[in-house]
C-alpha cells in the first residue's frame, strides 16, 4: 500500500528538497528530471545543481550606450534618491513602475531585471513632475524614453507579445485624427466603453453626466461641429506620411 502511493507520487518540483528554497530564484537551479550517468540513475534531486550567483560583471557598455542618446545623456548623474518615484503620477497606480529603479538597472546594465518590467516600462505619461523634482537634474522623464528605446531594442519579442496594440481603438483614434484633425474624447470614451461591454453604464448618472460635461466644456469638439483646424490638408498629409514611414520601419 505504502509502495503504491510512493509510485504515484508526482514528480518533484524543481529544487523542491532545497532548504529555504524560496531564497533561490528558479533560474539559478538546474535539475534534470531523468538523468543516468554511467548507468547510475541520478534523476531528480540527485543531480540538483545551484548555479553560482556570480554576475559576469556590471555591464558598463550598456550604460555608455544610453549615455550617448539625447534623452539618456544624464544617466551618470542619478544617485538614487527616489524623488522621481515619490513624485511620479503613475507609480501609485502601477507600483511596479519605478523610475528610480529603472535608472539604476540601466546604470548597471542589469538586463535580467529590466526584462521583468517590459509590461510596465511604458506607463510614463510624460507629466515631467519627476524632472521638476529631481535634485540632480537627471531629467528622469526623458530617461523613461531612453528606457522605452532599450526595451524595444533588447527585448523585441517580449515587447511584441506583452504589449498588444488594440487595433480597434487604434483605428478609431487614427480615423478621428485624420478625419477631423481633432480628438473627440467623448467618442473615444464611448467606443472604449462599448468594447468593454459596458454600454448600459453610458446612460447612468456618472457616465452620462461625464459625456454631457465634455460636450459642455468643449472637449467633445467634433460633436459641436467645430470643423477642422486651419490648413488641415497639409498637416494631414504629413501625419499620414509619418505613419507610413513608421509602419515600414517597424515591418523591417
Amino acid at each position: 500500500m505504502a509502495l503504491k502511493e510512493q509510485e504515484k507520487r508526482p514528480v518533484a518540483a524543481k529544487g523542491e528538497h532545497i532548504i529555504a528554497r524560496h531564497l533561490i530564484e528558479d533560474d539559478y537551479i538546474k535539475e534534470e528530471k531523468n538523468l543516468v550517468i554511467d548507468g547510475v540513475d541520478v534523476s531528480g534531486r540527485w543531480n540538483t545543481f545551484i548555479f553560482s550567483r556570480v554576475n559576469p560583471k556590471f555591464d558598463r557598455s550598456f550604460f555608455s550606450e544610453i549615455k550617448k542618446t539625447v534623452v539618456g545623456s544624464r544617466i551618470n548623474r542619478c544617485w538614487q534618491c527616489g524623488m522621481c518615484t515619490a513624485s511620479c503620477t503613475v507609480t501609485p497606480l502601477h507600483r511596479r513602475f519605478n523610475p528610480r529603479a529603472f535608472i539604476y538597472m540601466m546604470q548597471l546594465g542589469n538586463m535580467k531585471e529590466l526584462k521583468k518590467y517590459v509590461d510596465v516600462a511604458w506607463r510614463c505619461v510624460g507629466c515631467y513632475k519627476c524632472s521638476q523634482r529631481c535634485p540632480k537634474q537627471v531629467n528622469p522623464a526623458e530617461m523613461m524614453e531612453a528606457l522605452a528605446l532599450v526595451m524595444k531594442k533588447y527585448f523585441p519579442e517580449e515587447v511584441e507579445s506583452k504589449l498588444k496594440v488594440d487595433e480597434d481603438v487604434k483605428k478609431i483614434y487614427e480615423d478621428m485624427i485624420l478625419g477631423n484633425g481633432r480628438l473627440d474624447l467623448a467618442k473615444l470614451h464611448i467606443s472604449s466603453m462599448r468594447k468593454m461591454g459596458r454600454t448600459k453604464e453610458l446612460v447612468d448618472r456618472i457616465e452620462g453626466g461625464a459625456v454631457l460635461k465634455m460636450v459642455k466644456d468643449g472637449r467633445a469638439f467634433s460633436l459641436l461641429q467645430l470643423g477642422k483646424p486651419h490648413g488641415w490638408k497639409k498637416s494631414r498629409q504629413a501625419i499620414e506620411g509619418y505613419l507610413k514611414k513608421v509602419d515600414t520601419i517597424e515591418k523591417n
Partner: peptide, 23 residues
C-alpha cells in the same frame, strides 16, 4: 578569489534587493 585572477565582492544590492557577487 574569483576566476581569471579576479577578486569577488559579495554584497547586497540594497536598492533592488538580493545578493550579488561581482568580480
Amino acid at each position: 578569489s574569483g576566476p581569471n585572477n579576479t577578486v569577488i565582492c559579495k554584497g547586497e544590492d540594497t536598492l533592488l534587493r538580493g545578493p550579488f557577487e561581482i568580480p
